Amino acid sequence: MAAPDEHPTDLPECPSAQSGGLLPDELRAWMVLLAATGAVEQRLRAVVKEQLDVSHDEFLVLCLLAEQPAGLRMTRIAELLGRPKTRLTYQIACLQHAGLVTRKSVCGDKRGVEVVLTEKARLLLKEASEPLSETVVQALGRIMGPTQREAMRALLPDVTEPSGTE
C-alpha cells in the first residue's frame, strides 16, 4: 500500500513488467497479469459492496451468470472460478436469499443444479456497470507501466495513464 504522502505517479512500474531479469517473457507477462488482477480486485471490493451489496466472490458469480442468459450448472461455475463446490453452495444461497439468482434442478440429472440471474440482478448489474468498469480501467492504468497499458488498450481502449502523468 502506498504511503500517505505518496502519489500514484511516484510509484514504480510493476517490477515484473521490467525485462532483463531471470524470467522468460511468458512468466513475466503472467506476473504482470497477476499484479493487474490483484489491483483490480482490491479496488473493486469496495465498489461492488457499495453498488451491489454483495461480496467480491458473489460478484464474480453474478458476472459469470450475466454472460449466460440460460444459466450455468453449479459445477461449471465452481470450475470456472476455481472454487470448492461447498463454498459456492454458500455463495449461491446468499445470492438466492438476496433475490439475485434462482436455482433449479437439471432435467434428467437429480444431482445437477442450474443457477440463473433474476431480473433484479440484471437491473442491478446494468445500473452498476459504469462505476464498476471505471474502477477496472483506473486500477489497470495505475498498476501497469506504459508498455503494458499500450498492450492492454488493444482490449480496453479506455485504460489511461495514472492521474498527473498525462
Rank of each mutant, 00 (worst) to 15 (best):
L60H: 10
V61C: 10
L62D: 08
L62C: 07
L62F: 06
C63E: 13
L64C: 08
L64G: 01
L64E: 12
L65H: 04
L65D: 08
L65V: 00
A66Q: 10
Q68C: 01
A70C: 05
A70Y: 10
A70D: 13
L72W: 01
L72M: 15
L72G: 00
R73N: 06
R73K: 05
M74Q: 14
A78W: 04
E79W: 08
E79A: 10
L80P: 03
L81K: 05
G82T: 03
G82H: 06
G82W: 13
G82R: 07
G82Q: 06
G82A: 04
R83Y: 15
R83K: 08
P84F: 04
K85E: 14
T86I: 07
R87I: 10
T89N: 15
T89F: 09
Q91L: 10
I92V: 15
I92W: 12
I92G: 11
I92Y: 13
A93I: 01
A93K: 15
C94V: 12
L95G: 03
Q96M: 06
H97S: 12
H97V: 12
H97K: 12
A98L: 14
A98K: 15
G99C: 02
L100D: 00
L100E: 01
L100I: 04
V101S: 06
V101Y: 11
V101W: 15
R103E: 15
K104W: 02
K104G: 03
S105T: 09
S105V: 06
S105C: 05
C107L: 09
C107V: 01
C107Q: 11
C107N: 13
C107F: 08
D109W: 15
D109H: 03
R111M: 02
G112F: 01
V113E: 15
V113W: 04
E114R: 14
E114M: 08
E114C: 03
V116A: 00
V116N: 14
T118Y: 05
T118R: 09
E119T: 15
A121L: 09
A121N: 04
L123W: 14
L124Y: 13
L125T: 00
L125R: 04
K126Q: 14
A128Q: 06
P131W: 07
P131M: 00
S133A: 06
T135A: 10
T135R: 04
V137D: 01
V137K: 13
V137I: 10
Q138K: 12
Q138M: 11
Q138S: 13
A139K: 02
A139S: 12
L140P: 00
L140E: 07
G141F: 03
R142M: 08
R142D: 11
I143H: 09
I143Y: 08
G145F: 13
G145I: 01
G145Q: 02
G145L: 01
G145D: 04
